[in-house]
Amino acid sequence: MRRLFGDILVPRATTVALWAWVVFNLALVAWVGLQSLKDSGQVWLSPFALPDTVEWGNYSAAWKAAGFSAAALNSTVLTLVGSLLIVALSAPAAYVLARSDRRAAGRLTGYFAMGLSIPVQTIVIPIIVIKLSVSTFMIDWVTGWWDNRITLLVFQVVLSLPFAVFVLTGYMRSLPHEIEEAAELDGAGPLRAFVQVVLPVAKPGVMTVLILNVIGLWNETLLALLITPTPEERTLPAALLSLYGSMQYSSDWGALFAGIVILVYPMIVLYLWLGRRIVEGMTAGIGK
């Protein structure tokens, strides 16, 4: 009985369930792609059939509807600039936190880690207040204009700092100490030693953090909804939501699925390309 359950029934059922899960995930991704190529009637009436005719027009419809072209540009720029900023701020900080033996270093590492357990909801209201005040202040007193996308960028970067600093500090600790000593022997200043010696050695860890932030910022929705609500300022997840919300009037289902593909497939490509590093990065620093 024990053997029947513990060796046969439960493991076999679990294996079957795991494969069903795998099939479901793959089928979902493929199905979304197929749906995006059908005309709207077929999307709705025969969701599981292969497309009769390939409707690339769905993509141009999605591109025009709900400001997808602006949203794609916003998402791309915000994601790339944001991720680079996160790394540029966190890598030097993590480096000195990991390598210094000052007492302050340990405390400050803990201070950054504290941010990991502060939910974003605690600062939702302050963010709204800051967004309104900054834009009024800049328009009235300084530049005469302001773009809320800058505010969005700043907060997306700042809220990602604790995780980036936390993971990179752990990573930098694991690097051999000899590297920067060698650089210092050459008489290199701290900045040169960091850029020319430490960064190349730490590249795998830094790249992983960069990629994780690319994924995180690309999919980020709450801040985007709060800070940049207008169509020109929107990012892709918000544009998709707005397109979805309008379906009951427009019923352009083909375009809706094209919108999903525009949002999802870039990340799938990234995952196919760098999959293992993504999984390792997301689980590193936590499991150890």
Binding site: L89, A93, L97, R102, L108, V165, P190
Partner: peptide
């Protein structure tokens, strides 16, 4: 060592932003 002199300059941007 050089990296100790770099402590605050390297840390402050992230620390202030955070």
């Amino acid at each position: 060592p050089a990296r100790e002199r770099a402590f605050w300059p390297f840390l402050l941007p992230a620390l202030i932003a955070y």
